[in-house]
């Protein structure tokens, strides 16, 4: 069902974002290519969320250019996103997924089967008829993943999907993310959890104060970081 034209690679060319006098992203140039998950890491406020939003296409840069598969202003049908604090619609868990399917243009007859399939995929089949807002934090995050998958995306953006979850819920979310990546969906994820980056990343984009300090394959980044900031971060020391 995927459109023939790919949104990959996503190319950032000299992209800056300013909010008033504050520079959030400072002349970023970056290629996000097909393959294993791209993980954005860096301290809070380094611009991870802003970069994710730009990639998703729900934010326009102050200057510079972003292209998706060579096209600027690609419509975004093939991209989906899970926010750090996803908004649960005031209806049941399965109705949330059905809503996303409808928004993605799925025909009514196929929706019921797809809802069941997606709920199973994120391990929420037993929670289908619960009000979404009554689910636990981890369950809400998994429901948000199911909603994002309903769009049948080529690229899935995740903004700190486990930021406030306990280890068990974090593992559940990571397992799902891994299986999504294995099914051929390009994952672009922001996290400040270096352990999570080690577990999931194919390549690492290390951001410090709105600039790309380093972009490298995960093994390279963790074994021989090229910049002093990255070395500090990999050691587990605080990068400010």
């Amino acid at each position: 069902m995927r459109a023939a034209i790919s949104d990959l690679p996503i190319r950032f060319e000299d992209v800056s974002v300013h909010a008033g006098a504050v520079t959030i992203l400072d002349r970023i140039s970056l290629d996000v290519t097909p393959g294993a998950p791209t993980v954005l890491i860096g301290p809070n406020g380094c611009g991870k969320t802003t970069l994710i939003r730009l990639g998703m296409g729900i934010l326009t840069p102050s200057s510079g250019r972003i292209t998706w598969g060579g096209r600027s202003g690609a419509p975004g049908e093939q991209r989906a996103m899970v926010f750090q604090r996803p908004v649960m619609l005031r209806r049941t868990a399965s109705a949330n997924v059905a809503y996303a399917l409808e928004a993605a243009g799925a025909a009514r007859p196929e929706r019921t089967a797809r809802v069941d399939e997606l709920m199973q995929r994120v391990g929420l089949e037993g929670r289908a008829e619960r009000p979404a807002r009554r689910l636990s934090g981890g369950e809400q995050q998994r429901l948000a993943l199911a909603r994002a998958l309903a769009r049948n995306p080529e690229i899935l953006f995740l903004d700190e999907p486990t930021a406030s979850l306990d280890p068990a819920s974090t593992k559940a979310v990571e397992d799902i993310v891994r299986s999504i990546a294995a099914s051929g969906v390009k994952i672009v994820m922001a996290t400040h959890d270096i352990g999570q980056a080690r577990r999931l990343a194919g390549n690492i984009v290390f951001l410090v104060r709105g600039r790309v300090a380093e972009h490298a394959l995960a093994e390279r980044f963790f074994t021989s970081p090229a910049t002093p900031e990255a070395a500090t971060f990999v050691r587990g020391d605080l990068v400010i």
Partner: peptide, 21 residues
């Protein structure tokens, strides 16, 4: 806003979604 924009929900559906929620 963010969630519905990311789901590419159109203007008419936004109105009905928000009224319902």
């Amino acid at each position: 806003r963010d969630e519905l924009t990311a789901m590419r929900v159109g203007p008419f559906a936004r109105v009905t979604t928000l009224l319902w929620d």
